[in-house]
Design a protein around this nucleic acid. Structure first.
Lengths: 208, 208
DNA sequence: GGTAACTTGTGAACTAATTCACAAGCCCCT
DNA sequence: AGGGGCTTGTGAATTAGTTCACAAGTTACC
């Protein structure tokens, strides 16, 4: 299969969220044009995005909302449940652990870790904060698929090394740092300072 | 000035974070190559990114860490303090309000709002949750530059309409929805479900 | 069954972003 | 003062991503 651009995957995710809402409203078919308007893109873009994975529509008619939902879920690998662990029981870590939107989309937070012994044992919803020293043994025993890193930047690389060594292949990184990981590990970084600075740039340079 | 790509702005932000760390360690000059390695890109990319805004280095020698910090801060508009309000005192909103990294970077959270009267008056650090109905009058009186939207998707567009009408030109949106705003308003959306789904895609299609 | 009105799927054309490659400039050493 | 070793800044080439445009397929209706 040809390499798929990250932008394409993002858009598929976005289309799926619209399709699910539309499905809930009882609409049964949708055209690439309607989907494009919802996603702020063009109909050609929608069709091209889908064409990398097959042909899902009917000419003259559009796409079956239900079938397209199923197809995109399959493309994105959402047909199964993913086991997530959160590392860092600070403000961000605990907020994420309590965030229901994750489990709604099939991502189940199974454990939360911290290195601070004062936090270990603390309850976060139905979970109890575990000591980070257990991460290696837990990772293989409990089969975590994804680790969410919500720790200070100075510890992030060290923890990333440990969890990738323990076999975790996907990391959602909230630390404002560029992680170095083996090539078979995927990292997505969410850096809020960077987003705010992008807004600062836009405000400063607006009006040309 | 030519239109600057969002990817360029992101990278400048990233370079700045490295430069600040390096400055703290006492290193006085840096080459595009070293900066590129830190940022996971190429030296040509670093030089090109900077070249859109001027020439900041010395041939044969590299860049002065201190001067480059100052220049990038100026490019990004970080020479001033930005006034931020957070809308939504739920899990994400309160976690963001308490997040110190914002003020370190010059973004000051001045107020937090919610529509739930049970939450209004509640303390979040030194702030007290205000009723959302006050947002219009507060926005002009207190001169908010940036609004952070941390509310359920079904309310996000309505609130976005109100705050843009009230003159706010920049929105950091955590609601998983595509906001429609006037062209002079900049929106950055952080959608964690979408990031997780990107990881799901990578895990599912790894090894090609 | 034929035709009109749509909409997809996809090469081709175009636009944007990244990488190459090298002249020009700077520092250090002798 | 001149040469060698670096590193920047930037047009040119390349690669990646988006948009165009149209043949091909589908439905509805007469």
């Amino acid at each position: 299969m040809k390499r798929i651009a990250e932008s394409t995957v993002r858009r598929l995710s976005l289309y799926l969220s619209f399709l699910e809402e539309i499905e809930g409203r009882g609409q049964t078919t949708i055209s690439s044009d309607e989907l494009a308007r919802l996603g702020g893109t063009t109909s050609a873009q929608v069709r091209k995005d889908l064409s990398f994975f097959g042909s899902f529509g009917k000419r003259g008619l559009g796409y079956s909302v239900q079938e397209l939902c199923v197809s995109i879920r399959e493309i994105l690998g959402l047909g199964r449940k993913w086991r997530v662990c959160i590392i860092g029981a600070g403000k961000i870590g605990t907020a994420l652990a309590r965030y229901e939107a994750f489990s709604k989309r099939g991502f189940y937070v199974k454990a939360i870790y911290d290195s601070d012994s004062a936090k270990v044992g603390m309850a976060v919803d139905s979970l109890s904060v575990r000591d980070i020293s257990r991460i290696e043994q837990d990772a293989s025993k409990e089969g975590f698929d994804i680790a969410v890193l919500a720790i200070p930047p100075e510890f992030a690389q060290g923890v990333a090394d440990r969890i990738t060594a323990a076999g975790i292949k996907a990391i959602l990184n909230f630390a404002p740092i560029q992680l170095a990981v083996p090539t078979d590990v995927t990292v997505r970084t969410v850096n809020m300072a960077l987003e705010l600075e992008g807004l600062s740039f836009a405000l400063t340079n607006r009006g040309n």
